[in-house]
Structure formats: C-alpha cells, structure tokens
C-alpha cells in the first residue's frame, strides 16, 4: 500500500526533462530572429503558412491511419481467409513501394487513370477530373502508413494473452465487444511507443508531399530559396521548425504513456 502511494506521488511530480531540449530549440529560433531578423525573420514569415499545412496534413492523415490501420490489422489476424488474404496483400505491396513513388502515383497517375475511365465511358465529370493536391497527399500518406500501422496493431493485439479473449468470451461478450473493451485498451497501451514513433515519422515524411504541389514547410522553404539563394539560413530554419514539431510530439507521446500506465 505504502509503495503504491509512493508511486502515485512519483507519477504526479515527475518532470520530463526532455522538455528542456524543445525549449532550447525554441530559444535558438527566437535568438536567430532577434539578432538576425534579416534573413531569419523573413524566412519564418515566408514559410509560416506552410507550418499549418504540414500540421493539418499530418494530423488528418494520422487519424485516418489509426482507423484504417486498425481495420487492416484486424484483417491480418482474422481467420477469414479472404479478409486475411486481402489485408496481407495490401500490407506486402504497400510496404514494398517507396512513399515518394506512391505520392507521385496518387497525384499524377491516379487522376489520369480516372480521366481515362471517364473518356472510355464518356462520363463528363470523370474525364474533367482534377486532383486536389492536399487531398491526394492525405490519401497517399494514409494508404502507405495504414499498412505500417496495421503491423503495429497486429503485434500489439497478439501480445495480449489468449486468456484475456477467452475470459471475455466466456462472460458472453462477442468478438467485437471483447476487442473493444478488453483487448484493444490493453494493446493500445503496449503499442503507444511505436505508434508515437509512426506519428513522428509521418510528420517528417509529410515533407515529401512538397513534390506534389502541397505548400508545406518544405515546399515554402524551397520557394524562398529559389527567390533568395541563401540555402544555409533557409534550410537551418526549416530544420529547426521540424524539430520543434517532432520534439513536441515526442513529449506528448511520453506524457500519454505515463498517464495510461497500468496500475500495479
């Protein structure tokens, strides 16, 4: 009893000192802007509208990845051969193609395919189809990352002892109730670190969408450089901005991990 009380206190007063690293990066940015407003202030203002695009693209994709990754992961552990086969083919194929190539496909090739079908069937709305860059970027990121995430889910679910499912089923719960109330709440705690890792990787890989006409941080950086030819300062600022986002995400993941730890 005493030791559990001590643990509780530790949980409340625990300070994650890696926050300091994030503050350090923010301070560096502020110092650069303060002492060298030209060019750093200009760079920051120029790429700042890219920050919200990067965050928006990443967050929307990640929420979709959580949903579709779970579906694919459940497919991978399903005893139904069709579901299992479809999920396995999806994961194996998507894992084997570089993300950049997939993004190119969604933005450049996919609309052409749709237009081709439109012409073939002479459907006006399809043959005039134009791809929305952000939408295609989100589809591309989601399609790819859901495959990775499904493997994380699968590993997490399979790490929960079989007895948990049996206990839930023996109480009369059906498969989905058992998943929802017993298996997933435990599996999610276990997979939190790799899920956080996937989020941060996705955040960084979202820079690839800059090649498919999405004006994210990276693309705005390239545009600034093309006009001003100061590569060192531009890419330093871009790198620091990404660091702020990723370091902040990592702290949030750690915080969630600590909040959801099992009582023992």
């Amino acid at each position: 009893m005493q030791s559990s009380q001590a643990n509780k206190n530790k949980k409340n007063y625990y300070f994650d000192r890696w926050w300091l690293l994030l503050f350090a990066v923010i301070i560096i940015i502020l110092l650069l802007i303060y002492f060298k407003p030209d060019p750093f202030r200009r760079i920051l203002f120029f790429v700042s509208d890219g920050i919200s695009v990067t965050i928006y693209t990443t967050l929307v994709s990640f929420i979709l990845v959580l949903v579709f990754g779970l579906l694919a992961g459940l497919g991978r552990i399903s005893k139904n051969r069709i579901l299992n086969g479809a999920a396995t083919i999806y994961v194996e194929l998507v894992r084997g193609i570089p993300l950049l190539v997939q993004l190119m496909f969604w933005y450049f090739a996919f609309p052409s395919v749709i237009q081709g079908i439109g012409k073939l069937l002479s459907i006006q709305s399809l043959s005039n189809y134009r791809a929305n860059p952000i939408l295609m970027a989100i589809i591309g990121l989601t399609f790819c990352y859901a495959a990775y995430m499904s493997e994380v889910y699968r590993a997490g679910i399979q790490s929960i002892s079989k007895g948990q499912m049996e206990a839930a089923r023996s109480l009369g719960m059906n498969y989905f109730q058992a998943m929802r109330f017993v298996i997933l709440p435990q599996a999610i705690r276990i997979i939190l670190p790799p899920v956080g890792n996937e989020f941060i990787t996705l955040l960084k890989d979202s820079s690839l969408v800059s090649v498919v006409a999405v004006a994210d941080i990276t693309r705005r950086g390239r545009e600034f450089m093309a006009a001003n030819f100061i590569p060192v300062q531009t890419w330093l600022m871009v790198a620091l901005l990404y660091l702020v986002l990723t370091l902040f995400s990592a702290r949030i993941v750690t915080w969630i991990e600590r909040k959801t730890k099992l009582e023992r």
Partner: peptide, 22 residues
C-alpha cells in the same frame, strides 16, 4: 453459443482478470 456462455461462468487457472480495469 453466446446464449450458453451467459449461463455458464468460467474460472481459469491463470485468473485472466482484465488488468486495465479496477
């Protein structure tokens, strides 16, 4: 099977309590 399971309680060797719930 679900109907029977609600009428039949089971106790396991390894307890199999749900560790994330009180």
């Amino acid at each position: 099977i679900n109907a029977v399971r609600t009428e039949v309680g089971m106790v396991f060797q390894q307890f199999n309590l749900f560790p994330h719930l009180s």
